[in-house]
Amino acid sequence: MPDNFQTLLNHYNPPEAPDNLFNKIIARINKRQRMLAISRVIVFSLSLLGSLVAAWPIFSAVKIEFVNSGFLQFLSLAFSDFEVIITYWQSFILTLLESLPAISIALFLLIVFIFMGSLRFLTKNIKALTNKNILAN
């Protein structure tokens, strides 16, 4: 292709972008980031509150199930009949594991996980909202 077409097209000047276009773009992005941060604060506040409300009854249920399962009684054997436990340690461990109220423990850990996660994301988004230079989403 003839080289002087490049020379010709070097003279082509499309209109310049308006001076304030950059600021408009940044303002629009910042506005969206702000809205996202606000909606996340709402969502994570609700999940934090929900996990707090759910934690107490679940914890109470875990306590009751521990008592009813016999786990504590089995565990106390480790202190009262230590030599027997040493001899039959495999059966002892299996018995302990079987008596664990696994489902309620799992549920409680889930609530704790939700609580910690909500707290983490809530503080991150509150920080983003209060920070003048909003960081990447």
Partner: peptide
Amino acid sequence: EKEALDLLIKRYLKPIFG
């Protein structure tokens, strides 16, 4: 680094507009 986004936009604002 928010400044990096500003630089990217400034770099391509005129070409994209054109």
